[in-house]
Amino acid sequence: KRPVSAMFIFSEEKRRQLQEERPELSESELTRLLARMWNDLSEKKKAKYKAREAALKAQSER
């Protein structure tokens, strides 16, 4: 099983909040919005998710 990506971790963290704030969005619209949010995120903020990705990857390799 492959470890999850930093973007996937970000998306899972933000998805529920966005669904509550924007219930009119379809699943595909929500996914596009999350992708745009990820792309607009600064490298400094992405680092938090990339660190979690690395930790999960290291854990799965044990």
Rank of each mutant, 00 (worst) to 15 (best):
K1R: 05
R2C: 05
R2K: 04
P3N: 15
P3W: 03
V4H: 05
S5F: 02
A6Q: 02
M7H: 13
F8I: 13
F8R: 14
I9A: 09
F10C: 00
F10M: 01
F10A: 00
F10H: 03
S11P: 00
E13A: 04
E13S: 06
K14T: 08
R16A: 13
R16Q: 12
R16L: 11
Q17H: 09
Q17D: 08
Q17K: 09
Q17T: 13
L18K: 02
L18W: 02
Q19Y: 09
E21F: 04
E21M: 10
E21V: 08
E21P: 00
R22G: 03
R22D: 07
R22F: 11
R22H: 15
R22E: 05
P23V: 03
E24M: 06
E24N: 05
L25Y: 05
L25G: 00
L25H: 00
S26M: 11
S26H: 05
S26A: 08
S26C: 03
E27G: 09
E27T: 07
E27H: 02
E27D: 15
S28H: 11
S28K: 12
S28E: 14
E29V: 03
E29Y: 02
L30H: 04
L30A: 10
T31F: 03
R32H: 15
R32V: 07
L33Q: 09
L33P: 00
L34D: 00
L34Q: 01
A35K: 06
R36A: 14
M37R: 06
W38L: 00
W38Y: 06
N39A: 12
D40E: 11
D40A: 07
D40K: 06
L41G: 00
L41E: 02
S42N: 06
S42K: 03
E43N: 15
K44D: 15
K46Q: 08
K46H: 01
K46Y: 01
A47H: 03
A47D: 03
A47C: 06
K48P: 14
K50F: 14
K50M: 09
K50P: 01
K50I: 15
A51D: 08
A51S: 10
R52G: 05
R52V: 07
E53G: 07
E53Q: 06
A54M: 09
A55L: 09
A55C: 13
A55T: 11
A55S: 11
A55I: 07
L56W: 08
K57R: 10
Q59F: 05
Q59A: 11
S60M: 08
S60C: 13
S60L: 11
E61S: 12
R62I: 11
R62M: 13
R62Y: 15
